[in-house]
Amino acid sequence: MASAQLAKGSTQLRRRSLRKAMPGYAFIAPAFLLYAIFFIYPFIISIYYSFVRWSGAGPKEFIGLANYQRLFSDRLLWQALSHNLVWVVVGTVAPIAIALLLGALMWRGARGMLVFRIIYFLPVVLAEVVVAIIWNWIYHPLFGALNELLAAIGLGSLTRGWLGDPDTALIAVLVTAIWSYFGFAFVIIMAGLQDVNVDLVEAAMIDGANGWQRFVHVVIPELRHVLTMITAFTLIGGFNVFVIIFIMTQGGPGTATQVIGTYTYRKAFQESDIGYGATLSLVMTTISLVASYLFIRLRERSE
């Protein structure tokens, strides 16, 4: 009796709270519906595809974990991942180093700071195709600025077709990418510098620390938060990189600039190996999720 009443009361309560909640769901529903159809659902299907062999037409053949086993013996995949690793390390260190240098110089105040900030961020807003055209031109074997520059300073022997040479193609595309996003690191570091506790810096100054020491020992530790964040971005971005490489070299010459992003595209859309392509895409997802998780943990610890 009592419990029945209680149950009745609780359904009423639930009904009331549902009515109260309805507007909340109404606000969320349109976005969630679209996101579910065009993001969550395909993501789940990707997982399903990773267990089948399928060429995009005809029946799908269930093959269990075979696609996953194939990952371990796929030398091209490991080569691609090693290129991603180079990309992540250089593509993280270089923009942060440049941004810190510029930040250090500006942090002490500079006339025309706004103009510099606008200019440094300018490459970030350009579409990758435009960036690729710009740098294809710089690397052009006949007219390119890089070869002209090398010839002008007496290093003519080094001139080459930078993107066509397997030894330099990866680093050439990587330099292009760094050019196109170091401004992002710069802007974030500048924002972080605004929050640096000025009192700490002044205290260090009174203790006789010079500008460089103050920057390295007081300011940079205060920036750890911001630096972790940029690293998370470049880490995830470095494993997911696709567009700039696809446009500039298509992963070539040979496999010299193949990364997991271009390799996945190749398997799925050029070789119609849908199941294995999906498996590769899940490798990318796993790396991204692990990196995000590490980032969140690191952030919690730094707080």
């Binding site: 395909p42 993501f43 990707s46 995830i236 997911n240 992003g261 999906a278 991204s288």
Partner: peptide, 19 residues
Amino acid sequence: FLLGLMVPFQSIMIPLFYI
């Protein structure tokens, strides 16, 4: 929704084609 910030587009691009 946050998951969408971490999952790269590549992991949905293949099924999305067929959808």
